[in-house]
Simulated scan of single mutants.
Amino acid sequence: MKNLIKTLAIALSLTTVTACNANSKRNTQDLAIVETKLETNVKSDNPEIKVALLLDTSNSMDGLIDQAKAQLWQIVNELSYAKYEEKNPNLKIALYEYGNDNLNADEGYLRQVIAFSDDLDEISKSLFSLTTNGGNEYCGKVISTALNQLNWGDNEDDLKLIFIAGNEPYTQGQVSYKEASKLAHKNDVTVNTIFCGDYDQGISAYWKDGADLTHGNYMAINHNKASVHIASPYDDKILELNEKLNKTYIAYGESGRAKMELQAEQDSNARGYNKANAVSRTVSKSSRLYKNSSWDLVDAEKEKDFSYDDLTQDQLPEELKGKSKDEIKSYVKTKRNEREKLQQSIAQLNIKRRDYISKKSTDEANGLENAMISAIKTQAKKKNYNWE
């Protein structure tokens, strides 16, 4: 059977972790584990916004990780409005953690959690997998690793950004941050630094210098501040539409059922913060950036290499087994029409929601979200990106 599922570049990385029993506080032996990291390589004529997020997961960074989890969907939504010469840029996000004593010392206490991906559910899952412990934070090492491991490409129209967040001196480790910055500049990658603490303290710890070397933004945030989510009168209706939206997905192939369960799991993770955050995720799910062609027939049908002739009975969901090709096409078309109407309704409600929130907003801007969006828009403008 021809390959129906979007080809994924699979990078296997051996990582040694130290498991800690929280009850007995006894350290067990280091365990070598194999992790699969997915990188999507979808062919597209549109430029890409590539964001590598490098998060310090040492003991003091629980607040930072919490902000990242709580603010992911707002960041995605803001990026969905970006334009480049009337084109809609694609978004790919990669995630690294560093400064965690559970990670392999020989690798510099860092780990690639997920390579560049446009699978928003997988990115959300990766963020929610992060935990904090210990701390040896080597900024130069994690930056150079991300530059060397990730597929940054050579398209001059792409916006290539690294965001590194932490609270220890930027100079730690055997890899010089200055050498890492030179490598970033050579590859047209802008490094933005986010110091978790006092602005002047971050400057004295060389975080500003790290950003300046690649013409990036230096920012300081209060990483322990709770994320601010403003409720709106439109939230309940949007969440109601989300339930209907989920019913328009037609899971197929080996990963279909698991991916649908992952979708529900990330809905639940978003709700774990509050209703407004779940609404932000729903808006992301109704946007052009939420792509599921690897497991959903509605999205898959739009791909150039898709053919109904390649479908086999064992790949189909129960409701489509034994159906003719025409019957399957008709079913997919019905679900597509339902989804498009729901997406349109969510988008219309979101316009009203954004207007309501803008009028209710105070100066209590979310730290990580505000820092990232501000930097992205500043640097995107230099490459002629604009926002709707």
Results as ranks from 00 to 15, higher is better:
Ser13Arg: 12
Ser24Met: 00
Thr28Glu: 06
Ile33Ser: 01
Thr36Trp: 02
Lys43Tyr: 13
Asp45Met: 09
Val51Asp: 04
Thr57Gly: 12
Ser58Tyr: 09
Asp62Phe: 06
Ile65Arg: 11
Ile65Tyr: 10
Gln74Ser: 12
Tyr84Ala: 14
Glu86Gln: 14
Leu95Met: 06
Leu95Trp: 09
Ala105Arg: 10
Ile114Gly: 12
Ala115Gly: 13
Leu120Asp: 05
Ser126Leu: 06
Leu127Tyr: 11
Phe128Thr: 12
Phe128His: 15
Leu130Cys: 10
Thr131Gly: 10
Cys139Trp: 02
Leu161Phe: 07
Phe163Ile: 01
Ile164Leu: 07
Lys178His: 03
Leu183His: 02
Thr190Met: 09
Phe195Val: 02
Tyr199Asn: 11
Ala211Cys: 05
Thr214Asp: 04
Lys225Asp: 02
Ile230Asp: 11
Ile238His: 06
Ile238Ala: 12
Lys244Met: 11
Tyr249Lys: 12
Tyr252Glu: 05
Ala258Thr: 15
Glu265Ser: 14
Asp267Tyr: 09
Asn274Arg: 03
Ser294Asn: 07
Trp295Ala: 01
Val298Pro: 00
Glu303Ile: 05
Asp309Leu: 14
Leu316Asp: 01
Ser324Val: 04
Tyr331Thr: 01
Ala347His: 09
Tyr356Val: 00
Ile357Thr: 04
Lys359Val: 03
Lys359Pro: 00
Lys360Gln: 10
Gly367Tyr: 11
Lys381Tyr: 09
